[in-house]
C-alpha cells in the first residue's frame, strides 16, 4: 500500500515538473479558483437565507411567506 502511494505521489511530482503548457494552465486554474472562492463567494455571493435565518424551521417559514406573498404576483 505504501509503495502504491509513493508511486502515485511520484507520478504527480514528476508530472508537474515536466509540464510545458500545463504550468500556464495551473496558474490559470489557481487564479480562477482564488477569484471564485476568495472573492466572489466571500464578498458577492452570500447564502441569502442563511444570512437572515439560523435554523431550517426559520428558513422554511421565510420561504413559505415569500412564495405565497401576493406581491410576488405578476
Amino acid at each position: 500500500m505504501r509503495k502504491f502511494f509513493s508511486r502515485a505521489a511520484e507520478m504527480y511530482i514528476d508530472g508537474f515538473r515536466s509540464m510545458t503548457v500545463g504550468k500556464k494552465l495551473w496558474l490559470l486554474i489557481i487564479i480562477k479558483l482564488i477569484i471564485i472562492f476568495a472573492v466572489l463567494k466571500l464578498f458577492f455571493f452570500p447564502d441569502f437565507l442563511g444570512a437572515s435565518c439560523d435554523t431550517d424551521t426559520e428558513k422554511a417559514a421565510k420561504v413559505r411567506q415569500e412564495i405565497s406573498d401576493e406581491s410576488r404576483r405578476y
Binding site: I36, L40, K41, P46, D47, F48, L49, K59, A60
Partner: peptide, 17 residues
C-alpha cells in the same frame, strides 16, 4: 460552481423550494 453560488444568492426561494 458559479451557477451554484447564484442559486444560493439570487435564487434562494427556488433553492429552498
Amino acid at each position: 460552481i458559479i451557477l451554484e453560488f447564484e442559486f444560493g444568492t439570487n435564487w434562494s426561494n427556488y433553492s429552498w423550494f
